[in-house]
Write a protein that binds this DNA or RNA. Sequence first.
DNA 1: ACTACGGTTGAATCCTGAA
DNA 2: GTTCAGGATTCAACCGTAG
Lengths: 236, 236
Amino acid sequence: MFKESINSISMTWQDKINKINQQDCLELMKEMPDGCVDLCVTDPPYGIDYQSNMRIQSKQFEKLENDDNDMRFVAFKEIYRVLKNDSVIVSFCSFKNYAVDYLELEKYFNIKNCIIWFKGGGGIGDLEHSLLTDYEMAIVGHKGLCPIRGKRDGSVWEAQKVFSGAMTHPTEKPIDIMGRIIGKFSDVGNLVFDPFMGSWTTARACMEMERNFIGAELSADYCEIGKQRLRQQVLL
Amino acid sequence: MFKESINSISMTWQDKINKINQQDCLELMKEMPDGCVDLCVTDPPYGIDYQSNMRIQSKQFEKLENDDNDMRFVAFKEIYRVLKNDSVIVSFCSFKNYAVDYLELEKYFNIKNCIIWFKGGGGIGDLEHSLLTDYEMAIVGHKGLCPIRGKRDGSVWEAQKVFSGAMTHPTEKPIDIMGRIIGKFSDVGNLVFDPFMGSWTTARACMEMERNFIGAELSADYCEIGKQRLRQQVLL
DNA sequence: ACTACGGTTGAATCCTGAA
DNA sequence: GTTCAGGATTCAACCGTAG
């Protein structure tokens, strides 16, 4: 009790930099001032898992199927606020939710690219009528104008999927892709924000790329996995 | 005068199969009955007021006709009507108009894929802040459920751009890509529809793939080019 | 068959001047 | 002030030729 009250008084948002933080991202962002981060890279949740875990209070009586969109949309607006000028958000999505995310992000950001992560390999789904969707998309939205670091790359990036035996999260992105995004749109020593950390891949990529990170993840299990992954990182 | 009236009485939509047809596609579709075509492949104007940057004097391409969102959206509805059950529309777009096209097509079609044509090259635009967009998208929407012919391919298709010296239309798609789409979603002898024929690439791909075609193009110049291209095709 | 080198391009974007 | 059309700009990737 005493310790908690001490924490709640003394803990600032900056104390959460480079740490595993089990929290709702909207709560975290409330603590963060305008323009405090240099880049946002994120892979926001869709679908059932999210609906069961992260319904936002103000919308709790609305239809369930809209909850995940509402959550992302509220987050996008806040992400815009905490990003500094001349920086970007890079937000992953599939071809099915690209449309709604694009139109929502477009309200705040100047969308200048869509990166195609070509991951190859097999897949599931409707084998008879559907092509295999062997890629994912990432929308790049600018607050102001963020310069590309290094060479001007194309938009189709090929990278191996995370080996299923090593995967710690169902939608885990490879370190290669995360690192490449971080390298293209931020500098060494910058602060990178990911409101939906999942298994903390963004955090691990930041350590490899010598960036600071801040982020949140609601699930205690994934935060525990994140702690293990970052500990491994330190030992490397 | 006499000949015109004869034509207007006797000319049916079926007389326009496998022919160059200079016409507004909405007018053509009015003549076509429900469920009369087996596949629609099209590359509509994206609504971006595109001015080709081609610097060869002989190829100063004009801006495209029908280059607005409303035109595409009205066409989509009619395309749905003229498609038979268990068939698809494959409609090209860029990452900038994907969102609006997706939401409009979704009103009628069950969207099951988005093909990425990875074309490489390019390089114009905002060199400092923007990645190179070296691909185009094609939305695959089902009326009913259209089976995939042959192998279940992935969705990222690499193919060379049309060589600039041979290009007859500022946004011309390669025969390879058109032929591959036609082969995946139709059978030999089927009727393939393209309301925005441009330089009649879809028609030429149909002849190579032994499909019948029907389509329209407003520009007399591009229809003339189409005639020449199809004549060349016959000689092959 | 290779590499080297110089010319050309791009469903773009920026800037300027006119209305 | 604002919108809009037209012209200038840009460089990594690609093509063609030469060695």
